[in-house]
Design a protein around this nucleic acid. Structure first.
Lengths: 225, 225
DNA sequence: TAGATTGTTAATCGATTAACAATC
DNA sequence: TAGATTGTTAATCGATTAACAATC
């Protein structure tokens, strides 16, 4: 099993993508999969897949490939998703509400088990069967419901205070959707997830291609699928 | 101005974070900012900030730093956000609806100007003043409204077909929230944005720290802010 | 056995950091 | 002038790729 000492972010991302594809493969009844197949499905290289996996042990058989079920189990354990996680959403606005309702989370072992907001009109209401709690009950509720991860969807001004409260309450990881960088103590994992930043990256990437597109463009002036 | 030949993804991400902080700095009335200040606000190094910026030209003055307004303008141009972008949301479920309503987008030059769905019950309804169109009108609407970017929030089964339709319609970039990898022609930018993958990365990162936390933990058994 | 595919080592590539002369 | 901070070069670091012996 080897130690997960500290997995590079990029490796961690790819592992999650491998798992997603392994789930698809399992659903299709595939018994075995090769590093080349996994790479092709994700747009990476076979060497990279093998390298990523070999960091944690020997899961494949030369000449055969990987058993889909075995690898799935192994990757789930590595990622820590071989059991359910209780997650909080802090800030019940448009985005927070959508996250609370998102069916993809419980399907993949993440339960949104607590909601928090400062607005007295929102506190006490229910979203997807979960009651919205006041921010000042955060510590209590986090402990009670065994919350270990949080998604932060509050305005920029409120983000740092909310992150502090979460860290104090013992949350181990924060997904930060707020449009500002927050600080957390070293024992807490923090992932930036500002959606506007994603769109800006996209616009940046899109800007680099128009010349290439014009050159490649077919009769319709557009590249086909 | 130097060319944006092809900006590394990591650089592009940081530029977006610099811009976000420059906006905060400008709002606070700061006239000048140093690479060290910018780095401190984001958790990077001053050398990295200077390196990132110098790729595009010389924006600062030795001994002084960067003019906030000048740098802001420059970074906006580099990222391509010095003008408005028309964006489509494909798939009007919980998440798609939240994205359509998200105030952070128009505030930062991204207008959600088109919505698409296959459900006849959803088509024709309005979200945030924008009517939901049927998928088979995608090409037409994209052309009419000058849509150049899209956010894909459809189920896994529908994702590839939707991505194909978007590429054919001439969209230049796709933010893919669907839980599956899709292929796009080389002229189209594609960013993965599966929120479950983000949570899995978080759980992966959180798993690596409990030992460290226990060691560092203060009297309350928790690390302070 | 022959063909396929792994795990791992060595070589390559790119990105980050440190250092410093140039400049305000 | 002295102190500060840039832009850039060289050194370091880590990650990706290629190659191949080992193995099924």
């Amino acid at each position: 099993m080897t130690r997960a000492d500290s997995i590079p972010k990029a490796t961690c991302l790819r592992l999650s993508l491998y798992l997603r594809h392994l789930d698809h493969a399992a659903a299709q009844g595939l018994g075995t999969i090769s590093s080349a197949q996994l790479a092709a499905a994700l747009g990476g290289t076979a060497a990279q897949v093998r390298k990523d996996l070999s960091r944690f042990g020997q899961f494949g058989r030369p000449g055969v490939g990987y058993q889909v079920e075995d690898l799935r189990r192994a990757v789930r354990r590595i990622l820590g998703v071989d059991r359910r996680w209780q997650v909080a959403v802090v800030g019940v606005g448009n985005l927070g509400r959508a996250l609370a309702r998102h069916q993809g989370f419980p399907q993949r072992n993440f339960d949104v088990a607590a909601l928090f907001d400062v607005d007295p009109g929102t506190v006490g209401t229910f979203v997807e069967g979960v009651e919205v709690s006041a921010m000042d009950r955060l510590r209590e509720v986090v402990a009670e419901r065994n919350i270990r991860l949080a998604m932060l969807t509050v305005p920029a001004e409120a983000a740092q205070a909310a992150a502090d409260a979460l860290a104090k309450a013992g949350v181990e990881g924060i997904l930060n959707f707020a449009p500002i960088s927050v600080r957390v103590p070293s024992g807490v994992a923090l992932y930036p997830a500002d959606l506007t930043v994603l769109l800006e990256q996209l616009s940046c990437a899109a800007r680099c291609v128009p010349a290439a597109r014009a050159a490649e463009a077919g009769p319709e002036g557009r590249i086909g699928p």
